[in-house]
Design a protein around this nucleic acid. Structure first.
Length: 321
DNA sequence: CTCATTTGACCGAG
DNA sequence: CTCGGTCAAATGAG
């Protein structure tokens, strides 16, 4: 149909826009990091803030791009940033996904239905969730400043819903879901796991993408009980002494690989998902979502994004007005 | 009061 | 059975 064509076109444009936007932000950030303004650390907060904003913008752009690629059944992503010395990000398939979207919005097997009412609109069983796009980012904890690397919580707000000790891992893993899950049907989740070997590194795995209109103010730093929570993402690392702050530059490495030569992937989507817009108004669907709101984000290759914190040593704070 | 986090128990997969 | 992921009651913060 023509409609689809147009849509793809539109999406492509948007995609390109997002990528360009991200690239530009990346360049700016690169420039900033590249030229220490030799300014006193005292006024670095503003610069740091700016850097953070840029970083978020970059990540946001790429995230959106990925979403778009995912839903438009695009072939293997081939994003290679080569702007000067920007490091590449590696997208690696993380699990053997099978390309077959068989959405059955009918089976709800709730996980545990014991003493509570049925699992409301739990159309997702673990199976389905497994099909959601998934990628991991390694984030190195920055100076206690909390400047963290990436998008920590992005612009999104997350709500912690669990923590588990993982076999063989020194640190527990925390589970977060989008705060708007119930209100906006946003099924994005993420898990944060502190690396066993390098405790300054957090591995953040995202599952699904946000369908909510981000917004919401960033969540406040959790109180934190020194001993039990370690999977804090953005909070001020309370238990960390001090040190390891010098090397907090995060370099992005985007590289594609491990993807098949995508070729048939094009005819995957019979039709487009219900609604799926990011960046739109905040009115949630009045009563739109009833039957099968699920955006069948078919299973894609699950890219793993690695953000390697390896960069010479530039000061995070380059002042700049 | 509302809302987020903590925490043990539950569930499904292997 | 074990393990990873999720839920929800209790608790805490604002």
């Amino acid at each position: 149909m023509e409609g689809k064509k147009d849509m793809l076109n539109w999406e492509q444009k948007t995609l390109v826009s997002e990528l360009i936007s991200g690239l530009e932000a990346a360049k700016k950030l690169q420039a900033r990091l590249g030229e220490p303004s030799s300014l006193p650390p005292s006024s670095s907060s503003r610069a740091a803030e700016m850097n953070e904003i840029l970083m978020k913008q970059i990540l946001s752009s790429y995230e959106k791009s990925l979403v778009m690629l995912n839903r438009s059944s695009a072939p293997p992503v081939q994003l290679i940033l080569k702007a000067g010395s920007i490091a590449p990000v590696t997208l690696i398939p993380e699990s053997p996904v099978s390309i077959n979207g068989s959405p059955r919005s009918e089976d709800f097997l709730d996980g545990r239905g014991s003493s509570n009412t049925h699992r409301q609109n739990h159309l997702f069983n673990s199976k389905k969730r497994k099909m959601l796009p998934k990628w991991t980012e390694k984030v190195r904890m920055s100076p206690e400043r909390g400047l963290e690397g990436p998008h920590q919580d992005d612009v999104y707000s997350w709500r912690k819903y669990g923590q588990k000790d993982i076999l063989g891992a020194k640190f527990p893993r925390s589970y977060y879901r989008c705060t708007h899950r119930s209100t906006q049907n946003c099924w994005a989740t993420k898990q944060v796991q502190r690396s066993d070997s390098d405790s300054t590194v957090f591995e953040v795995t995202y599952r699904g993408t946000h369908t909510c209109s981000r917004a919401t103010a960033a969540a406040p730093p959790p109180p934190a009980s020194p001993e039990k929570q370690d999977t804090i993402t953005k909070p001020p690392i309370a238990q960390k002494p001090n040190d390891l702050l010098e090397s907090l530059k995060t370099s992005l490495t985007v590289r594609t690989e491990g993807l098949d030569e995508g070729e048939d992937v094009f005819s995957l989507f019979p039709n487009t998902p219900p609604f799926y817009d990011y960046g739109t108004p905040n009115d949630y669907f009045g009563g739109l979502m009833e039957s099968s709101p699920i955006f069948d984000v078919v299973d894609w290759f699950n890219p793993t994004v690695e953000i390697n914190p390896e960069f010479p040593t530039f000061l995070p704070d380059s002042i700049y007005y």
